[in-house]
């Protein structure tokens, strides 16, 4: 997950590597995602998110659609 100055920079990066453009997030979405994903990591009772919890987190940040699908 990289940070780019703008859309044209993402396009150029993808073209230079001959890879398909993926999905984009605003930094605010990235912050909300990171906060939900990591804020418990130092706690003794931490455990990985379940599939359902991850889906709920992605959806809460507005990350919905096939790119964000976690299931087969």
């Amino acid at each position: 997950m990289l940070l780019f100055r703008g859309e044209e920079h993402i396009d150029r990066w993808c073209q230079s590597r001959d890879i398909k453009r993926g999905a984009t997030l605003t930094p605010e979405q990235g912050w909300q995602l990171a906060d939900g994903w990591y804020k418990e990591k130092l706690k003794p009772e931490w455990r990985r998110h379940t599939l359902e919890e991850t889906e709920a987190l992605l959806a809460s940040v507005g990350l919905i659609g096939s790119f964000w699908n976690l299931r087969d």
Binding site: M1, L3, R21, L25
Partner: peptide, 8 residues
């Protein structure tokens, strides 16, 4: 802008 190249 953040870019995810790989689907989840």
């Amino acid at each position: 802008i953040i870019h995810f190249a790989v689907p989840a």
